[in-house]
């Protein structure tokens, strides 16, 4: 199982994403100008401030050469995980529904949050125990999930809401407390919290983030058998 981790100018969490992915498989960086995804079985679009996040978070990164390949990879059914800025990039690329707007509190906010796994059967959550609550950090300024009413109704019905902020944890004002969504096909997933920062109890007090990477490995290797 090989993960490919994208790296844009301004990415800052690609190293942690690489380290987290290497706990469950092989992983390599993919520079943003590179069209070749190096035979990766799954792609991670990491957190940070791609291209400085000028204009809107993720708006420019979405047109990079590597993202062109990621869009084709996703269209062919490949697994794509977007974390924080990566989630914003995937929304801008229209691989995921909705958009991420400035936090309701207008502040960069860094805290540990509890997340409810709403959809436990996805390729990104299938290693989570049923009814799991995950303890994972968030750190962002633009994390308020927004989609229009019709889209919200559609994604709720089709089980695309994968993670919700636990009671009292929705500091950014996300609609329906949404912290993570997948596409209709279920192979593209984005979340604002950072599972790659919660893989070692000694450092983060939680290794719940590993479950996301373990789920992806299960999904990829299950599909191979």
């Amino acid at each position: 199982m090989k993960f490919g981790v994208l790296q844009f100018p301004g990415s800052c969490d690609e190293v942690d994403a690489l380290a987290a992915a290497r706990r469950v498989g092989d992983a390599e960086l993919i520079w943003h100008g590179q069209r070749d995804l190096g035979g990766a079985d799954a792609i991670i679009v990491p957190g940070g401030f791609s291209y400085g996040d000028y204009l809107r978070a993720g708006a420019i990164a979405r047109f990079s050469a590597a993202m062109e390949s990621v869009i084709e990879f996703a269209d062919a059914g490949g697994l794509v995980l977007g974390i924080c800025n990566g989630f914003q990039v995937l929304c801008e690329a229209r691989l995921l529904p909705g958009a991420l707007l400035p936090n309701a509190n207008l502040r960069f906010t860094f805290r540990q949050v509890h997340l409810e796994v709403v959809a436990g059967e996805t390729p990104f959550t299938c290693a989570c125990p049923p009814g799991a609550m995950l303890s994972i950090p968030v750190k962002h300024s633009f994390g308020r999930y927004y989609a229009d009413a019709a889209t919200l109704q559609r994604i709720e019905r089709s089980g695309q809401v994968v993670l919700r902020y636990g009671a009292g944890e929705n500091f950014n004002g996300s609609l329906h407390d949404i912290a993570g969504v997948c596409n209709e096909r279920g192979n593209v997933f984005g979340l604002m919290p950072h599972p790659e920062h919660a893989v070692e109890e000694l450092i983060g007090g939680s290794s719940d983030g590993l479950l996301i990477f373990q789920s992806m490995r299960l999904a990829v290797e299950g599909a191979r058998v």
């Binding site: 204009l55 809107r56 707007l101």
Partner: peptide, 8 residues
């Protein structure tokens, strides 16, 4: 395509 996000 770029300057605005027509969704929002």
């Amino acid at each position: 395509k770029l300057l605005a996000n027509p969704l929002v």
